[in-house]
Nucleic acid binder design. Structure first.
Lengths: 176, 176
DNA sequence: CAGTTTTTTCACAAATTTGTGAATAAGATG
DNA sequence: CATCTTATTCACAAATTTGTGAAAAAACTG
């Protein structure tokens, strides 16, 4: 490695970046993300401005405009990207939200609420007195717990990120 | 032998249970679960003992033994079921773990650790000084936060579940 | 160690998902 | 309003996933 010395300049090794994009996208896909959406998302994430046009995404990923369109629709729906249209330009820009992970977890909560409802019906079908019924109800309470606690956890993340370092409160996860 | 549905006896409406199994399994599949694994898991969950044989599962779900085999392998790997072999019997029993959700989240942590490592490489590729690099590093810190905090959250769940079975917090989601 | 029963493996078929190219719609500009 | 440019939709092809039947392997019994 002698010809391309881009270690200290603001010129990232594009090849290494591309490798990272594919790898992290694969990680996310593993975790239940649609594949193309994962790739598009990571591409935006590694862009210097945190925003890309559809054309840039299609070009850098080597995929069709249609694929990008579908992916950004998904990503906007789950709250990881926002669409921006600058007045002077015809191109939309897709930008990562600054509190993207907060948003992602917020959507999770909706899902949890739905699951709780399903479980309620299950408890009713089995009978609350049965062993199976009470097992199911414990599961419901677990999801309820998550639905209540995850937003709190996200608030703590926000606080740590924004205020951070200086005030190490060690009472972080206490129940009053 | 079963023509009437006695609603107050410990004889659950099998049809309603079957409906619930399919619906909750669908919910879980929505959330990234393999479909068959979801169905098998819910079937075990609604069994009175919390354990089933492969034959029972295949019969009640109307699927092949091979499908059950694959599903339980997955479920055991992610820690939601354990295999039990009773000495006298030839059949394995597949039992839901009592702290199944704890286990499920524990595995999530491994995944989070992997993602952090990937992100570290991404930061290196982009350069820590760049905007993209610092954005990526914030993402890494978020996952790190989760990896540390989720186990604590699970401990709190365990404590709440075991501890106050008698202390009723009436903040439960009770919407008539 | 033979005989059964249960579980797993494997090749293949069915079904779902995913991405593309071409056509269409939407939006801005002169 | 005509004309670009950009974004979306749609039918279809490719690829991955998922489930099955049959055969093999494993495990317990007598």
């Amino acid at each position: 490695m002698s010809e391309t010395t881009s270690s200290s300049a603001p010129c990232p090794d594009e090849q290494a970046v591309a490798r990272f994009v594919e790898r992290f996208a694969l990680d996310l896909a593993q975790g239940g993300f649609p594949r193309m959406a994962a790739r598009v998302f990571v591409r935006v994430l590694v862009s210097e401005d945190g925003a890309c046009t559809a054309a840039e995404l299609a070009e850098s990923l080597g995929v069709s405009a249609a694929a990008v369109s579908g992916a950004v629709r998904y990503l906007i729906r789950v709250g990881l990207l926002v669409r921006e249209r600058e007045p002077g330009s015809r191109r939309d820009h897709y930008r990562v939200r600054d509190d993207m992970w907060y948003e992602a977890f917020a959507r999770r909560d909706e899902q949890l609420g739905g699951w709780e409802e399903t479980l309620r019906q299950g408890v009713a079908a089995l009978g609350a007195g049965t062993r199976a019924g009470s097992r199911l109800d414990e599961t419901r309470r677990f999801f309820e717990f998550l639905r209540v606690e995850l937003p709190k956890l996200m608030d703590r993340w926000r606080a740590q990120r924004d205020g951070h370092g200086a005030a190490p409160e060690e009472d972080s996860a206490d129940s009053p």
